[in-house]
Nucleic acid binder design. Sequence first.
RNA 1: GGGCCCCUAGCUCAAUUGGCAGAGCAGGAGACUUUUAAUCUCUUGGUUGUGGGUUCGAGUCCCACGGGGCCCA
Length: 578
Amino acid sequence: MARGSDQVRSDQESPHDWVTRAADDAIRHAEQSGAGDRVITCASGASPSGPVHLGNLREFLTVHFVAEEIRRRGIPVRHLHSWDDYDRFRKVPAGVDPSWAEHIGRPLSAVPDPWGCHSSWAEHFKAPLQAALRELGVEMEEVSQTVEYQSGAYRDQILTAVQRRADIERVMSRYRTKAAPVAANDEEAEQLAETLADSVANDDRDAGDGDLARFPFKPYCRNCGRDTTTITAYDDDSTDLAYTCSVCDFHGVTNLSTQHEGKLVWKVDWPMRWAVEGVDFEPGGVDHASPGSSYTVGKELVQDIYGGRAPSFVGYSFVGVAGMAKMSSSRGGVPTAADALKILEAPILRWLYVRRQPKQAFTIDFGPEVVRLYDEWDSLGRKAADPARRDAQVLAHERASATARAGTLPVPRVVVPFRVLSSIADVTAGSADQISRLVSNLGHPHDSVDDLEPRLGKAMTWTAEFVPPEDRTTVRSSADTDRLAALSEDEELWLAQLLDRMPDELSLEPLTSLIYGVPKLARGMGIDDPPTDQVKADQKDFFRLLYQLLVGADRGPRLPTLFMALGADRVRSLLTPP
RNA sequence: GGGCCCCUAGCUCAAUUGGCAGAGCAGGAGACUUUUAAUCUCUUGGUUGUGGGUUCGAGUCCCACGGGGCCCA
């Protein structure tokens, strides 16, 4: 790690982060692969087997940020995304018609969409993510593995893999010699069996007996389309592959040179694509980086079989979710990028993924932390406005805020604290115009509702869907007649004074002095006189009374704000004794 | 059996190829005719899980241990 002093100096002038380093690695990889004039390829991959959740999003964004960094250095680069939609449909998730079990074993692109809105299962889950990525400013070249495999694009690589299957097996077997896990009890054993049956390792299962065991290629049955096939014979000269299907009992032959009816097993498929696509950088979940897992094995295979080099790699950790217990059951699943974008501005969601190193796990909180997150973001934004303070944090802000092609992502023209927007949204009936007027009155002048977007909409959604009921302010729907009938003499006087002097058109300043002034008036003082201790005590009681009558609680949002949110008529109806 | 991440203020967490341990909230003091779920100012708070090692210098790197979590087989 020795460095020249001049480089140390440049490090000090320009902050760096994990993105800088990953981009350095990718560029170095491209140079060492002897292709100086080639476009650098940063690859991501995902299987559209279900909702693409916030953990999967890390795959896309990690690559995106690295590609952006390379692009901004003026080096040709592409973000290539593979949809693993030729993978088998593994199991029917809860909430889907159990009859979909019929499709288990078929490619995700060949399973119909249970909701009927897209052309296939795969498309159903791709579409919402594609929309979210557009909002996030992520542009990528998308490739469908179904299209690639079925077009024969990998024909030569498949033939090579099959021809070299003994070498492949030699590599794979080295990683398979570990002791089988030991289950401590029956329950654990059951869980273990389930895990194994469900894991990607399933691809390793025997595809036939003897020489054909662990065959690197798996045909989809020509008759029923499932991968429930067992290879019965393979002729190296003709490349005819014979198989039987255990589900439909079909006996067939597919020719690997001329017909394109199957795919390589995952651990061979991945390195094959590194070679074909010339991948210089590709991240993966930390699980892919464990010894014996796909990256480790693939690294050897790409070299031995395809004469390529494994891309530079970063393993990313999992993304947790918090603060949405209420939602998980009703939605029947984990939150997606689209869910997060309902409450977070696109740059903030990007920021969450760029500010921490990939190997560090983090949690996206849909609960009260959202307010803090916005505050932190706004404060970082103020810091970023000062060029003298450009450090790694500001760099993260820059990466989050803009992309080379999309430019600056949408942020409100007038930045109002999220806390203010959401608490106002809480007490109004959710009318954006009304919120906008109140926000102006609270010292955030702006020309139109649009000036507050996209933040206002997200604050409204958050308040409505994510703030627990006990933390919300519920304005009474009708007057509390019992309480109004039981007013003390003082209380009656206060209310009378207030209602008498409250104008139909409320504005913040006069309303504030009126609310604080009522107890003074009741004691024969002027409305602008300084308060005495007695008056202060009265104010406390008066405020509590107002909260009880308006929102059925002892405390609440500041009264002048609350009054303005409700409007004079509503306040009057809730405070007028019968 | 193996790998990875985490342990830092009362709480939630920062500290980005080793360079003065920092925020927010909570707590305390104060300001504004204003005491509320507003705003602002100041402020208390630390043996960085434990024990070793490397280094001019360690929250950061290495080894061991304890605790929590994730993953692979």
